[in-house]
């Protein structure tokens, strides 16, 4: 069974979001997603300084098997991307919730995050797949 962290928010498209103490939001893909994708070989993140909109594709993760779009659960400015993934995309497989994060956003409307799924709802969603 794949790991689901209770403190995070989720999208049905398998991204997780963590509200940091400084008010920024960190985004990555879930353990369930990395397991389904298999070995990740490329990650394309949005550029620092660009704006991402909720519900819009903001990047892509490619495994040996398939390509998958990345969506942001919040609208806002991208303030950091995970440089590690450029050279070591397999980090997404080994550490999806920690070292394998994708990008950080300064959110313009935090209520968007509240609309995302709770850990329990996400668990129910992947069980239905």
């Amino acid at each position: 069974m794949s790991e689901i962290r209770p403190e995070l928010k989720y999208l049905t498209s398998h991204e997780w979001a963590r509200l940091e103490t400084d008010g920024t939001v960190t985004i990555g893909i879930t353990d369930h997603a990395q397991e389904a994708l298999g070995d990740v070989v490329f990650v394309e993140t949005p550029e620092v300084g660009s704006t991402v909109n909720v519900g819009e594709e903001t990047g892509v993760v490619e495994s040996v098997k398939a390509a998958s779009d990345i969506f942001s659960p919040v609208t806002g400015e991208v303030i950091a991307v995970n440089q590690l993934l450029e050279d070591e995309p397999e980090t997404v497989n080994s550490s999806p919730f920690d070292d394998g994060w994708f990008f950080k956003v300064k959110p313009s409307d935090l209520s968007e995050l509240e609309a995302a799924l709770s850990a329990e709802d996400y668990k129910a969603a992947i069980e239905e797949e």
């Binding site: 298999g38 070995d39 070989v41 040996v64 098997k65 397999e90 497989n93």
Partner: peptide, 8 residues
Amino acid sequence: PLHYGSQI
């Protein structure tokens, strides 16, 4: 079997 952990 598709893989046993890592295809690569």
